[in-house]
Structure formats: C-alpha cells, structure tokens
Amino acid sequence: MPYLINKLHLSSPHWPLVSRVFAALFGGYVLATSSSLFVSQILLHAVGKYQAIHIGLMLTFIVYACAAMWVFSVASVSKAWLGLIKLTIFFTVATWFLMQFTGVTS
C-alpha cells in the first residue's frame, strides 16, 4: 500500500492543481446539475413543470462557469472541494425539501 501511494506521487507539487482541475470539471458539473434541480423545483408552480426544468437547464452553464471560477480563486484545494460539496448538498437537500411540498417527484 505505501508503495502504491508513493507511486502516485501525492507529494508532487502538481497534485493540488490536478485536484483543482478535477474539482472544476466534475465537481462543477455535479453542482450545476443539482442547481438545475433546485431551480426547477422553485419555479415549478410559477411557470409549469417543463418550463421550470428548461430554465434550470439553461442556467446550468452559467452556474458551471461560476463554479469553475470559484474553484480557481480560493486559497486552498480543500476549501474548493468543501465549498462545492457543501453547496451541492444544500441544493440537493433543498430540492428534496421542496419536493415534499410540491408532491412532484423528480
């Protein structure tokens, strides 16, 4: 096991950067997806189901871009990952919470 970890060069100066790229690429995508679920739940009653989904989807690109910018602007990699995870959890829980009221299953 220690051999494998050594093989991964976890102490290499490139790791924080690689980790940040992954955070922006995949973390950002998951965050954008969860934000679209949240937006469509909020708008559901105002504009109807399909349009709510549509608006949520159209905003994902902006959320994705902002998430990527944020990941590259914060001081440390762990802060970037934690921030993404926290916000994703918030969106998911809020979506679930709203669904209890709307009664519409996503």
């Binding site: 997806t33 679920l37 349009q51 989904i53 549509h54 989807l57």
Partner: peptide, 26 residues
C-alpha cells in the same frame, strides 16, 4: 445541445414521454 450536455439533470427530472413533451413545448 442543452439536453445532450445536461443529460444527467434532464434524465433525473423527466421520463421518456415527458422528455419528448418538453421538447415539443420548446
């Protein structure tokens, strides 16, 4: 390619019939 790129989100929220109904609306 909105529905291609954001396939995860649209699949979570719609089944096949709803998806085509949504596309017809758009």
């Amino acid at each position: 390619f909105l529905f291609t790129y954001m396939v995860l989100s649209s699949n979570l929220q719609t089944n096949e019939d709803e998806y085509s109904a949504m596309r017809k609306e758009i």
